[in-house]
C-alpha cells in the first residue's frame, strides 16, 4: 500500500477543508461571480402559482423590410437566451447594446439581409393556481427606434412577414419600464 507522508496528509487535509468551506460559503452567502465556488442557484428561485413565466426572445426587421423572430442562440447571435436574460437590465438601460447582437448576426449570416431594427421582447405565460391561463407578448426595448413590437409578429417557428415600420400602428413608442427579470436556468 502507498502511504502518504505527514506533509502529504497535512496539505491534503487542509485543501479539502478549505475547498469545502469555500463551496458551502458559495451557496450560503455567495453569488454567481464566485464561480467556481458560486451558489448552486439554478432553479433555486420560487415561481408562485399565480405568477407569470417570462421568456425573452429577439425580434427584428431586416433590410428587406421583413419582420421575424431571431433565435437567441450561440450559433445565431453568439450568445444564448439565458445570457441575454442575465444582463437584460443593461440592454434596457443601454438599447444600443442591441447593435452588438445585430453585428453578431451579420457575422454569422453573411448571405442574409442585415437586421436594421431589433426588439428584445418576452413571451409571457400567466399562471393561475399553477395552470396556464393565457399568454401575451411584452416589448422590453427596441433599437434604434424604441417602439412597441408590431402586432403582425409571426408565431415561434413562423415565416417572416413584410412590415411597414412607418405605419402609425407600427411606430408606437415603448414607454414600458419593466425589466422583465426572468430567473436563471441552464445554457
Amino acid at each position: 500500500m502507498k502511504r502518504l507522508s505527514g506533509r502529504g496528509l497535512l496539505w491534503r487535509a487542509l485543501a479539502l477543508a478549505v475547498g469545502t468551506l469555500l463551496i458551502v460559503n458559495g451557496s450560503v452567502y455567495g453569488n454567481d461571480t464566485h464561480w467556481p465556488f458560486a451558489s448552486m442557484g439554478q432553479f433555486a428561485f420560487r415561481v408562485g402559482d399565480n405568477d407569470s413565466i417570462r421568456s425573452t426572445f429577439l425580434a427584428a426587421v431586416d433590410e428587406d423590410g421583413n419582420l421575424q423572430r431571431v433565435a437567441l442562440s450561440h450559433n445565431n447571435i453568439g450568445i444564448a437566451r439565458a445570457e441575454v436574460e442575465g444582463q437584460q437590465r443593461n440592454f434596457i438601460l443601454e438599447p444600443q447594446m442591441l447593435s452588438a447582437l445585430a453585428e453578431n448576426y451579420a457575422r454569422r449570416h453573411p448571405g442574409s439581409p442585415e437586421l436594421v431594427q431589433l426588439w428584445l421582447c418576452q413571451d409571457i405565460t400567466e399562471l393561475y393556481k399553477g395552470r396556464e391561463r393565457g399568454t401575451s407578448i411584452e416589448t422590453m426595448v427596441g433599437w434604434p427606434a424604441n417602439t412597441l413590437i408590431p402586432e403582425s409578429l409571426p408565431e415561434p417557428g413562423g415565416e417572416k412577414v413584410a412590415v411597414d415600420l412607418d405605419a402609425p400602428e407600427n411606430s408606437r413608442p415603448n414607454t414600458d419600464e419593466s425589466t422583465g427579470q426572468s430567473g436563471q436556468e441552464s445554457r
Binding site: 458551502v24 458559495g26 450560503v28 451558489s39 448552486m40 439554478q42 433555486a44 420560487r46 402559482d49 413565466i53
Partner: peptide
C-alpha cells in the same frame, strides 16, 4: 447545496411553487 440555495433564494415554500412549470 442546490437544496440550500433553494431555501435561500426561493424560501422553504420553494417545493410548493411553480418553478418546474416555469
Amino acid at each position: 447545496l442546490s437544496a440550500v440555495a433553494k431555501v435561500r433564494f426561493g424560501g422553504w415554500d420553494w417545493v410548493t411553487g411553480s418553478t418546474f412549470a416555469w
